[in-house]
Amino acid sequence: MFQIYCPYCEELREEEEFHPKGEAHIARPLDPEACSDEEWGDYLFFRDNPRGVHHELWVHAVGCRKFFNITRHTVSYEILETYRMGEQPTITAESVSGDLAGRESAATARQEGVRA
């Protein structure tokens, strides 16, 4: 179970108070009518879905009910930071150190177990 730090409540709370809402920082096109089918489809449906550092939108559904962002690792599930709407992440896939990559391979080895 995650312990998630809500950047508005400024407290650690249990995962069940929150709902994940998918990838963060997807800006709605300013003029949807001017979008091509390609651009509109990309906006609606296509996602990065990375194996690694992921920025995602969450809502503190049964708390303050505010939306905020989490940077989380999708293999180790480690929460790297939480930040308010409108802010930019300080930790990104490019900025993470080899230390994190090491922890990822350890997590992968644990979950995938023996090889054939």
């Binding site: 179970m1 994940p20 194996r51 992921h54 995602e56 989380r72 599930y77 997590a107 995938e112």
Partner: peptide, 13 residues
């Protein structure tokens, strides 16, 4: 689980 994940395990909730 509602969040994206590549860890082959599920959450307790």
């Amino acid at each position: 689980d509602g969040y994206n994940g590549y860890g082959q395990r599920g959450s307790y909730p």
